[in-house]
């Protein structure tokens, strides 16, 4: 690691390596989080104390792009997206290929992974309908997913039950569900809101973006058809928390931050696609549940913190049933 190597690696130095290690250990980083790290690196480089407050966006950007370029030969990349609720850009190291190798990098058992898959499925399928795009669930609902669904060919299964039982995936215990949901939050894959809803984190959206689209969206869907994974009309990133057009069949969705910026530049607050007035009171994400009359009523009744355990499930379920009714009647109703 003498001159030769220095020559080869160009401008990429120990400071960059230290930054990359730090990034890998954290998985994600924001500009604010990077400041003490870069300050320590600069201090080491210059033998002179550098304060976190002296770190600029340019410093951060140059280290991020150098790291991203350096790891790209290994099918790793640093991608970024705005956080959907905080006004902060989140950077994450993302695998651009997924192979058995990356699966090894998970610290969880196959049963736990299968459970997480069921949770994500529920977020995007069961709790994500044109009527109510909640895209999140609470602990009660997660708990219901603890056992894998029974195989469809149950009768057959009964006959040669012995062989089946051996390979049947096991479910999780209730206590394990709780631990698992919390560790998904700690590891940065889920986020838990104050009202106790779990949704995918920005990091998960960055890492799983193509997988989500592949798994939940219909590639043959026609233009203008409702899809499970939705994109922000302004920034084009995936949106799971934000606002939707008041017109139910209109597909425009915006992040809260993006909506603010978007309408600041326009004279009228109306939907860019169908021109209906943009209320900002129609939601995608947990507010699709928490802003409903039923939820508010329930909260008032039971006081803060303690809510009727099945309430969320009932609200989301009602959403579904109404929708079925409506499609049958072919009528349109206002949401609120």
């Amino acid at each position: 690691m003498d001159e030769d190597q220095e020559e080869l690696s160009g401008q990429y130095g120990d400071g960059n390596r230290a930054f990359l290690q730090s990034f890998l250990a954290r998985g994600t980083m924001t500009f604010e989080e990077s400041r003490p790290i870069l300050a320590a690196i600069f201090t080491a480089q210059e033998n002179e104390a550098v304060e976190p407050s002296q770190i600029t966006h340019e410093d951060f950007d140059s280290y991020v792009s150098a790291a991203s370029a350096a790891i790209s030969p290994f099918d790793l990349e640093i991608r970024s997206a705005m956080h959907q609720t905080r006004k902060e850009r989140v950077y994450a190291v993302v695998n651009t290929t997924s192979d058995p190798m990356t699966q090894l990098a998970t610290l969880h058992s196959a049963d736990e992974i299968a459970f997480v898959k069921r949770v994500i499925d529920a977020m995007f399928e069961k709790y994500n309908t044109p009527r109510m795009e909640a895209l999140c669930l609470d602990e009660m609902q997660a708990n219901k997913l603890r056992t894998p669904p029974r195989p469809e060919n149950e009768d057959e299964g009964m006959e040669n039950g012995e062989t089946q039982a051996q390979h049947a995936p096991k479910g999780l215990k209730s206590s394990e569900v709780e631990t698992m949901m919390h560790s998904m939050v700690d590891e940065g894959w889920f986020e838990r809101s104050r009202d106790g809803f779990y949704c995918l984190s920005v990091r998960a959206l960055l890492e799983l973006r193509s997988w989500l689209i592949e798994s939940y969206n219909d590639p043959d869907a026609e233009e203008g058809e409702w899809q499970r994974v939705k994109f922000c009309g302004a920034c084009k990133d995936v949106v799971t928390i934000g606002q939707r057009c008041a017109e139910r069949d209109c597909l425009v969705r915006l992040h809260d931050n993006c909506a603010d910026a978007f309408f600041r530049t326009r004279r009228q607050r109306d939907c860019p696609s169908c021109s209906k007035e943009w209320t900002g009171r129609h939601f995608i994400g947990e507010r699709a549940v928490t802003e409903t009359e039923a939820f508010q009523r329930g909260r008032r009744r039971s006081g803060k913190g303690a809510r009727h355990s099945n309430m969320v499930e009932e609200i989301m379920h009602d959403g579904e049933e109404e929708e079925e009714e409506e499609t049958r009647n072919g009528s349109e109703g206002d949401e609120e």
Binding site: R17, A18, S22, A25, P36, A40, A44, D186, E187
Partner: peptide, 24 residues
């Protein structure tokens, strides 16, 4: 193992990984 020079092995740079959680 990390082969960074000693000056870089300071707490802000090589703080604990967030897996399973920073405190743990």
């Amino acid at each position: 193992i990390s082969c960074l020079p000693k000056e870089y092995r300071t707490q802000p740079v090589i703080g604990p990984s967030r897996i399973p959680s920073t405190a743990d």
